[in-house]
């Protein structure tokens, strides 16, 4: 980076809900300072000024679901020094990856009266399936403190300090008693990446895995525990097949509890 020239930031959207890029605007206390520290060159949700690259840092939200987007992500990569995926869609394919387990023509017909008008790929795939990703932020949505850490770290030329641990560790740190042990509530916390702050158990519900699988997640052991707690095959199948359905350990575990009659 050149002295005095502020690093440039770009924000890109693919198939997504806009919630992860909204996390940037949700940094109400930091937004104006951030806009002073970096040059926000391309952020269509926030500004009509859209400047051409190259960009020092691109934040990419959303998954690849159309042929056009598969081309577009290559152009984004080519224009970006660092590329960071933000959220479950960009990092793992998102909830729209449920189509990967179904017949997409059936999906199109279920929603649209004139399927011929719709152009879509059969799968929803993460950004890393198409281009090199320098860092991936998990979560549906991402945590805004993690986002600020990644932006600061990459622009300062250091490694982002994002811990890799399970939600269980975060629960213990927060002082939340285990919902599985104390209340028999099925929870995906033991196999889910931390980062959200272990919100769900603190609110008395089981983690639903929106940050995706943690490293070395033992999903089979957890599924066995769920069975002991009374969860049936179908609910185990559904639990692993949601916002990170296409992330490998979750995909495998949901397949292991698949039900031919109830493919959903």
């Amino acid at each position: 980076m050149h002295t005095r020239l502020r690093p440039t930031l770009a924000v890109w959207k693919f198939a997504s809900c806009d919630g992860c890029q909204l996390s940037l605007l949700d940094c109400e206390d930091e937004l104006l300072a951030l806009a002073g520290a970096v040059d926000i060159a391309y952020f269509a949700e926030a500004s009509s000024t859209l400047r051409p690259g190259p960009y020092d840092l691109s934040l990419v939200e959303g998954s690849i679901t159309t042929a056009h987007d598969a081309e577009r992500i290559r152009a984004v990569r080519a224009a970006s020094r660092h590329l960071v995926t933000i959220g479950a869609c960009a990092t793992a394919g998102g909830i729209q990856a449920l189509r990967n387990f179904a017949d997409v023509t059936d999906y199109v017909a279920a929603v649209y009266a004139t399927p011929a008008y719709i152009s879509t790929l059969a799968t929803s795939t993460p950004i890393a399936a198409h281009v090199k990703v320098d860092f991936a932020l998990h979560g549906c949505p991402i945590d805004k403190a993690q986002l600020l850490e990644v932006i600061s770290a990459l622009l300062a030329g250091r490694k982002p300090e994002i811990p890799h641990e399970s939600v269980c560790t975060a629960c213990k740190r927060r002082g939340t008693s285990c919902v599985m042990v104390a209340h028999g509530t099925p929870c995906l916390g033991p196999v889910t990446e931390a980062g959200c702050g272990a919100i769900c158990p603190a609110y008395g519900r089981g983690c639903y895995g929106c940050f995706g699988p943690s490293e070395a997640a033992n999903t089979a052991a957890l599924a066995a525990t769920w069975t002991v707690l009374g969860a049936d095959r179908r609910s185990i199948h559904r639990a692993f097949r949601s916002f990170n359905a296409a992330a490998e350990p979750f995909r495998e575990e949901s397949d292991a509890h698949g039900d031919q009659d109830h493919p959903g």
């Binding site: 909830i95 189509r99 999906y107 639903y208 559904r238």
Partner: peptide, 26 residues
């Protein structure tokens, strides 16, 4: 890009609808 929520909701538990449909719009 279409995300096919009405299609992917089929077969899900009714109790899951609030969390799943929230993802239509952040």
């Amino acid at each position: 890009p279409p995300r096919f929520f009405e299609a992917l909701l089929r077969g899900r538990a009714g109790t899951e609808a609030p969390d799943i449909t929230a993802r239509i719009c952040g």
